[in-house]
Write a protein that binds this DNA or RNA. Structure first.
Lengths: 355, 355
DNA sequence: GTGAAAGCGCTAACAC
DNA sequence: GTGTTAGCGCTTTCAC
C-alpha cells in the first residue's frame, strides 16, 4: 500500500521522526501527510484522522528547514533595528509580530547598535536565511547596503524617518513635521514668546533627526511672524536630562519672560521641568513645556509632561499590513510611503489658556 | 574539468546564483566552493582566489536553508521572552547576541505577552525551525511545554528565577535572595524600624516573584530579631507608581517613626519617594528607601534611588557562554545552575549612617 | 482523493 | 587539494 520503505538510513541512535515515519505508520504516502498539514480539506476525513493520530503518536514536528528549501518560501521576515533596548523599537517589533503571526511569518530580528558597519554585517547574515522581505530602520545606509537590498529581490520597507528618499517602501513619520506640529500647538495656545532647546548639529553623524524637528519648528514660527531667536542649539547630540537642565538655564537667563518651550526630546524636557522647579519657575504657570517621544519618565514626573508622540506599535502594524499586501501581490509594486502621523499627548506641562 | 553541467533547471526568469553557478564559473566542483566558504585553508590559494572572484562577480549569497538541511545544523538558538518592551529582557537578548554572534549562531526571538498558552504556541512554531538550543524565561511552564522541551533533545536553559526546579539548565538569580540582601543592607545601615511595601499574593498567577522577595525579606528580619509587622502587602500585582504612593501612606499612618522601607519594585519605590515629599517626610533624612530592579526612572528622580540590581546583560552573556560550552560538548550534561548574583546600586535614597 | 518521481541548494563521507 | 556520490526532509508537479 505504502511506497516508502525508507532507503536504509544509517541507524545511529534514535532519530526525530520524519514525515516518512508518519506516512508509514498511517499507511499513506508522504504527500498525503503534507496535505493533512497544509490543506486538510483535500484529504478524506478517514485518512486525515489516521494521519493525525500517527502524528501525535510519534510526536512528529515538521521540519520547516526542509519545507522552506522545497517550497522556496522560508516564512522569514528580516527586521534590522538599531537596538532592542529602546521601547519604541520594541513596540515596532510587537506591532509587526502581531500581524505577521497570523500568516505564519516569523521575524528574524537583528540589531546594529547604531553602527552602519554592523548593519551591513547583520544584513549579510540575514540574507543567507532567505527572508521574504526586509524591514530596516533609519534612512541612512551604506551604498553597499542599498545595493544588497536591491539585489535581494524582495520587498524592502524602511521604518521611521520619511524625510529622505526611501530605497523602496517606507512607513514612518516626518521629524520635520514634528517641529511644525509642536510650533503650531504652542501658537494655538496663545503663546508668543516661544523657545526651543535642541543640540548643535555639528556632527554629520547622529542627530539629523533632532535638527529636522527644530528646523520644522523654526519654519512654522516664521510662518506666523514669530522670532526664532529663542530657539537654542546647545551641546552635542544625543540630548539628555542634563542637556535640558543646562539649556533652559541659558534660555531663562536670556529671556526670563519666556512663555513656552519645545524640547526635541522628552529626556531633555524632563531636565527643563526639573531645572525650572529648582529656580522657582512654575510649570506650567509661568512656563509651558512640550516634549517629544512620549518616554515613560514623562508620565511620572510632576507635572506630567505634555508631549508629541509617534505610535510605534501602530507603525509596526501598518508596516506589517503593507508587507502582507506586498507579499500577497495584492498591491502594485510602486513604492509606497506611509505616514503614520503624530499625536499630541495632553498632560499637564502646558498651561490651559482657554479658561 | 568541471562536472557540473547543471541538470536543466526550468528557465523561468533570472534566478539567484547558486553554488553550482559559482563552481562552473570558477571551473571547480561545488565542494571546493563550500570549502572556500567554510575552511579556506584547505584550498590552494590560486583556486581560492578564482572561487572568490566568481563569488563576488556573481553576487553569490549562500543559502543557509539548504546548508542547514544538509549539515543538520541550523545555527538557530530559540529565545522565548515574555515581552520585548522590557529593558531587562532586551538586555538579556543583547548579552546573548554578543556572545553568540562570534560563533555564527542566530537568535530566533519570540515573545509570549506573559501568556502560557502563547508560550506553547510560540515554542511549537520555534521547534519547526530546528533550533540547536532553547532559552526561555520564567520558571512556570505548562506540562506540555516541559514535555516538548524534553522531546526536542537540545539543551534547554531557563532564564531568571532560580528558586524553583529547572527543567534542565538555569541562569538567573533568586528573588528570595533579593529580599534577604535588602533586609541585610538596611539592617547593616543601622536601621531597626524597617518596613516594606509589596502586593497581596492573592492570585496564583503573576506576582510570586514579588512575594518571594518579600518572604526573603521577612526571614532575614526575623533572623535579626526584628519585627515584620511593618511589612505591608497591599493591592494587586504588578506593583506600580500608584501602589507605592498608597502603600507608604498606609505605612506612615501606622508608624510615623518608620526609618527605612524596601519596595519590591523601583516603580513602587518612586511612588514612595514622591508621596513622602508630598507629606513633607524627608528622604533620606527621615525615611530611607530601597528599591529593586534598577529602572531608569530611579536614576532620574530626586533623590536618585538606591536599588538592588540584577545585571541582565551579564546574565545574557553568561547564558551565552554556557550555551557555547554545552553546544561545543566541552561540558558534561549535568544540569548547570548559575546564579549571577545581585548588585546594590548605591545612590542617595538611603541615609548615610556612617558619618 | 492519493501517489510517484524529481528535485530544492547544499554538505558529509569517502575516493583519488 | 579536489571531486564524486548520495542524501538532508520536505514540496512541486503531474499522473491516475
Amino acid at each position: 500500500m505504502s511506497n516508502d520503505t525508507g532507503s536504509a538510513r544509517k541507524a545511529r541512535g534514535p532519530q526525530r521522526p520524519t514525515i516518512r515515519d508518519v506516512a508509514r505508520l498511517a499507511g499513506v504516502s508522504r504527500m498525503t501527510v503534507t496535505r493533512v498539514l497544509s490543506e486538510p480539506d483535500l484529504v478524506l476525513p478517514a485518512t486525515r484522522d489516521r494521519v493525525k493520530k500517527a502524528i501525535t503518536d510519534l510526536g512528529y514536528v515538521p521540519d520547516r528547514t526542509a519545507g522552506s528549501l522545497a517550497s522556496r518560501r522560508t516564512g522569514f521576515i528580516a527586521l534590522v533595528l538599531p537596538t532592542l533596548t529602546n521601547a519604541n523599537f520594541s513596540m515596532v517589533a510587537h506591532g509587526l509580530t502581531e500581524v505577521l503571526r497570523e500568516k505564519d511569518y516569523h521575524l528574524l530580528i537583528s540589531y546594529t547598535d547604531y553602527d552602519l558597519g554592523e548593519e551591513e554585517r547583520q544584513l549579510t547574515a540575514l540574507l543567507e536565511r532567505r527572508p521574504e522581505a526586509i524591514l530596516l530602520t533609519g534612512a541612512k545606509h551604506r551604498r553597499s547596503v542599498a545595493r544588497m537590498l536591491m539585489m535581494a529581490d524582495v520587498p524592502v520597507i524602511e521604518l521611521a524617518d520619511l524625510s529622505s528618499e526611501p530605497i523602496q517602501h517606507a512607513v514612518g513619520f516626518s521629524n520635520h513635521q514634528v517641529g511644525r506640529v509642536a510650533a503650531r500647538h504652542l501658537i494655538s495656545r496663545g503663546f508668543r514668546r516661544i523657545g526651543a532647546v535642541a543640540s548643535r548639529p555639528d556632527r554629520d553623524q547622529g542627530d539629523y533627526r533632532g535638527e529636522a524637528r527644530i528646523q520644522g519648528f523654526e519654519e512654522e514660527l516664521r510662518a506666523h511672524g514669530i522670532s526664532t531667536e529663542l530657539v537654542l542649539r546647545h551641546g552635542a547630540a544625543p540630548v539628555s536630562y542634563d542637556h535640558g537642565v543646562e539649556a533652559i538655564g541659558i534660555l531663562l537667563d536670556r529671556e526670563p519672560a519666556l512663555e513656552a518651550v519645545f524640547a526635541v526630546s522628552d529626556l531633555s524636557a524632563v531636565g527643563v521641568v526639573t531645572e525650572c522647579q529648582r529656580r522657582g519657575v512654575d510649570v506650567p504657570g509661568q512656563l509651558s513645556v512640550l516634549g517629544f517621544g512620549d518616554f515613560e519618565i514623562g508620565r511620572v514626573i510632576n507635572p506630567p509632561l505634555t508631549t508629541i508622540q509617534v505610535d510605534f506599535h501602530a507603525l509596526g502594524k501598518r508596516a506589517g499590513h503593507l508587507l502582507l499586501d506586498l507579499l500577497g501581490g495584492e498591491i502594485e509594486d510602486e513604492p509606497q510611503s506611509i505616514d503614520v502621523g503624530l499625536n499630541i499627548i495632553d498632560r499637564a506641562s502646558i498651561r490651559d489658556t482657554t479658561e
